[in-house]
Design a protein around this nucleic acid. Structure first.
Length: 509
RNA sequence: GGCGGCGUAGCUCAGUUGGUAAGAGCACACGGCUCAUAAUCGUGGGGUCGCGGGUUCGAGUCCCGCCGCCGCUACCA
C-alpha cells in the first residue's frame, strides 16, 4: 500500500508549555509517521506553533519583549521538547514565518475573490485570554469569562466575515461521500451533528491588534488567530509559495487532532478549503484526552507533568510505549505513573527484554554465541502464529489502531517464550533441536523489532544490533508482509551479543 | 433543555450485520522450570455484560424507560 502520507498535528499555542497532552498527540503522530515510512510510504510529518493573537502580544509586553522576540523564545520550548523526545517531524511550521504569511494571504485572497467574505460589525464581550467573544448569558459573576473567570472587555469592531453558513449542506454532502474521512466514527457523528445544527457566519479579522497576518485587501485588519492558524496545514507544504509541492501533498493529508477542536478542523477548515477552491483534507484522526486521576489534563491546570522530565526519568521509548499501548486512538484515557510502571514491567521488562536476554544467554552457552537461522515456516512451531500476528499488527496500524498492533506484536513475544519453555534448549545438548528453537526465537525478535520500531525506535535498533543484524531495523519498506516481515528473514551465522538488560525492572512506587 | 457517547471479570479494555465466545492483558492462587531482569511456562478462581421492561426460537449485541458518568451546544488548545 505504498502511497503518500502527509500527517499533521495541531500547531500548539506558543504561550503554553508542552505538556503530556500535547506530547501525547505529537508522539502518536510520530509513531504513525514512523510506521508509514517503514511501510514504504512517502511520508511528510509536520508539527509547529501558533504564534499570533492578543494574548501573546500581552504576555510579550509583560515580559518586556517584542512579540517577535517572545515567540522566538517560546516556540523553542516546543522545538526542544520534540527534539528531546526524538520525534521525527520533517518540518516545524511557525505561523510567524514569511512562508506562512504568504500562504495565508493567498488563501484568504482566493476566498475573497470567490465572494465568500463580506464586511460587517462585531461587538460583544471579549475575553482576551480566550481570544473569543462571549454572549452575555454565558458570562459568570460580574462579567467574568466562564473559562478564566477574569473580566471580559466590551469590544466593537468592523471586521470581515466568512460565509460559513453557506457550506453546511456542501459539507454534509462531502462527508456522505467520504464516510472514512473522520475516525473514529463517533467523532464523525459529532461533526455531522454540528453541521446539521446549522452554521453561523464567523468574523475572521481583527482591527484591534496588529500582531497577526495582515489582510491584503484591507490595511489595518489582521486575520483572527484561528483562521490564520488552520492555514498552517497548507502553508507548510507550499500553498501559494510552491504550488508543485502543495499539489504533491494535498489533499492526501491526515490531521491528527484532539476531540475538542473538531468544530474548527472538521467544519471551519474544510469549508475554508472549499471556499478557496481546494479539496478538503482527506482524513481526520481524532483522539481523546488523557486524564490524570480522572481529571482532564487541562493546559491551564497546574497539575501538569513535564513530558521531557518524565521521559528523562523513564526513557523515551518507555513513555512512547505506554502512551500508545494503553490509550487507543479515540477514547479518553487515565494517565497514571502506576499504570506506566505496570505496563513497563509486564511488557517491556518481563516479556520483550527478558526474551532477548535469555535467548542471548542460551545462544552463548549452546551455540558459541552465533545466531542460528530459523527453521522454515513449515517446520517451525512458531511460524504460523507469528505470521498471523504479524498480519494482525500490520492491519491494525493501517486502521489507526496502534495499540492493537502492539498487542498483536506482543503475542509473538509470548509465543516465543512459550516455545522456548516447551523445548528447554538449555537442558539439551547442542544440535539441530537447539539450533532450531533458538533460530526461531531470534527470528521472532527480528520481526518484533521491526513491528515495534515505530514505538520503540531505540530498543528496536538495539535488538537488531544484538542479534547481529547490520541493516537498519527501520529502513523504509521494512514493514512488508512478503518482504522483511515474512518468516525466515534472519540469515543465521551472525554474532549474538549479551548486554545489560534492555529494560531493567522498575520497582513499583 | 437539545444532540452525541459511555456504563462487560479487582484494574485497563475486545466483543462484526442478534445465535455454542461471555473473552484478552494485568493483578491474584496453585503447579512446573531455572536459560533469563524473583523473569518464564501451564492451570485456575472470578462477571446476573449499569437497572427495569419489551421484540425474538434466541440479545452485551435491537426497541422503550430509568440511573450514573462524559462530551458538544454555534468565535476557549
Amino acid at each position: 500500500m505504498t502511497g503518500r502520507y502527509y500527517l499533521t498535528t495541531p500547531i500548539y499555542y506558543v504561550n503554553d508549555a508542552p505538556h503530556v497532552g500535547t506530547a501525547y498527540t505529537t508522539i502518536m503522530a510520530d509513531a504513525l509517521a514512523r510506521w508509514h515510512r517503514l511501510a514504504g510510504d512517502e511520508t511528510w510529518f509536520v508539527t509547529g506553533t501558533d504564534e499570533h493573537g492578543l494574548k501573546i502580544l500581552r504576555t510579550a509586553e509583560e515580559n518586556g519583549l517584542s512579540p517577535r522576540e517572545w515567540v522566538d523564545r517560546t516556540s523553542q520550548r516546543f522545538v526542544q521538547a520534540w527534539g528531546a523526545l526524538e520525534l521525527t517531524n520533517d518540518d516545524f511550521i511557525r505561523t510567524t514565518e514569511e512562508r506562512h504569511y504568504r500562504s495565508v494571504q493567498r488563501f484568504m485572497q482566493a476566498i475573497h475573490d470567490n465572494d465568500y467574505l463580506y464586511k460587517g460589525t462585531y461587538e460583544g464581550w471579549y475575553c482576551v485570554s480566550c481570544e473569543a467573544y462571549y454572549l452575555e448569558e454565558d458570562l459568570v459573576g460580574e462579567n467574568l469569562c466562564p473559562v478564566h473567570e477574569s473580566p471580559v472587555e466590551w469590544f466593537a469592531e468592523e471586521n470581515w466575515f466568512f460565509a460559513l453558513s453557506r457550506f453546511a449542506d456542501r459539507l454534509i454532502a462531502w462527508y456522505d461521500e467520504h464516510p472514512e474521512a473522520i475516525h473514529p466514527e463517533t467523532r464523525r457523528n459529532e461533526a455531522l451533528g454540528i453541521l446539521k445544527g446549522g452554521l453561523r457566519d464567523i468574523s475572521i479579522t481583527r482591527t484591534s491588534i496588529d500582531w497577526g497576518v495582515p489582510v491584503p485587501w484591507d490595511p489595518g485588519h489582521v486575520f483572527y488567530v484561528w483562521y490564520d492558524a488552520l492555514v498552517n496545514y497548507i502553508s507548510a507544504v507550499g500553498y501559494g509559495t510552491d504550488n508543485g509541492r502543495f499539489e504533491h501533498w494535498w489533499p492526501s493529508v491526515h490531521h491528527l487532532i484532539g476531540k475538542d477542536i473538531i468544530r474548527f478542523h472538521c467544519v471551519w477548515w474544510p469549508a475554508m478549503c472549499m471556499a478557496a477552491g481546494i479539496d478538503p483534507p482527506a482524513r481526520y484522526l481524532v483522539h481523546g484526552f488523557l486524564m490524570v486521576g480522572g481529571r482532564k489534563m487541562a493546559k491551564t491546570a497546574y497539575n501538569q507533568v513535564d513530558p521531557v522530565e518524565l521521559a528523562n526519568d523513564v526513557g523515551n521509548d518507555v513513555l512512547r510505549y505506554y502512551l500508545i499501548r494503553d490509550f487507543p486512538l479515540g477514547p479518553d484515557g487515565d494517565f497514571t505513573y502506576e499504570g506506566l510502571v505496570e505496563r513497563y514491567n509486564a511488557d517491556l521488562a518481563n516479556n520483550l527484554g527478558n526474551l532477548l536476554q535469555r535467548v542471548a544467554t542460551v545462544v552463548e552457552q549452546k551455540c558459541g554465541g552465533i545466531g542460528r537461522a530459523p527453521r522454515p515456516a513449515a517446520e517451525s512451531p512458531l511460524a504460523a502464529s507469528a505470521v498471523e500476528h504479524v498480519k494482525t499488527a500490520y492491519e491494525a496500524w493501517g486502521r489507526f489502531s496502534p495499540h492493537e498492533a502492539l498487542e498483536a506484536t506482543w503475542r509473538i513475544i509470548r509465543a516465543a517464550n512459550a516455545e522456548l519453555e516447551a523445548v528447554a534448549p538449555w537442558k539439551i545438548d547442542p544440535g539441530p533441536e537447539v539450533d532450531g528453537v533458538l533460530g526461531d526465537a531470534i527470528e521472532a525478535l527480528r520481526i518484533v523489532a521491526i513491528l515495534a520500531s515505530p514505538v520503540l525506535p531505540r530498543a528496536s535498533r538495539e535488538i537488531w544490533a544484538r542479534i547481529g543484524l547490520s541493516r537498519e531495523v527501520d529502513a523504509p519498506g521494512n514493514a512488508d508482509l512478503s518482504g522483511s516481515l515474512a518468516w525466515g528473514g534472519y540469515p543465521g551465522g551472525a554474532p549474538v551479543t549479551k548486554g545489560p538488560p534492555l529494560f531493567p525492572r522498575r520497582a513499583a512506587e
